[in-house]
Amino acid sequence: MAISASAARRELDVQRYPLLVVVLVPLSAIFVQALIPRFIPRFDILDLPLLVTIYFAVGWRNPIAGTVTGAVIGLIQDALTNRPLGINGISQCVVGFLAASLGVKIDVENPGTRLLINFAFTLLNIGIYLFILHHMLAQNLGTNWLHEVIKAVINSIVGVFFFDILDRVRPRD
């Protein structure tokens, strides 16, 4: 009985986006993320592709779709860096999976909830990224945790407004 109720709620709340939006929004986020730091160097503290992953994952409420979205966006991000392919792919597919799983259980339309999940998933993404870098790839690189926490805070605040903008591209029922 409980399972059927959860499935019914998922069917009711699941968001559907046009294919063009699904393709163009992540690409645009990656493009803007790569272009803007040329003019505003501090812009690279933001992670718009990660916010897009979280947004689509919690909107679809489908862990498989969230995993695929996170993996693809993360791999494209890796391809633009000088690091091995898969670091961002792994971390973002985990984030996509967890965000989709969480989206079934909580109300993700609330700005406060959005603030919290953005903060938590940004920190989780950074943690997985650094774990892979330090322990799986054995790269002895420095880490400034204060900087990472500030980054998570800024991402969570910007994410609230960014999600609001993305809500406008969602088709109305």
Partner: peptide, 13 residues
């Protein structure tokens, strides 16, 4: 001419 960046502060490209 510089046309873009890696977009992340983890990689200065």
């Amino acid at each position: 001419q510089v046309i873009g960046t890696s977009g992340t502060d983890q990689s200065r490209i």
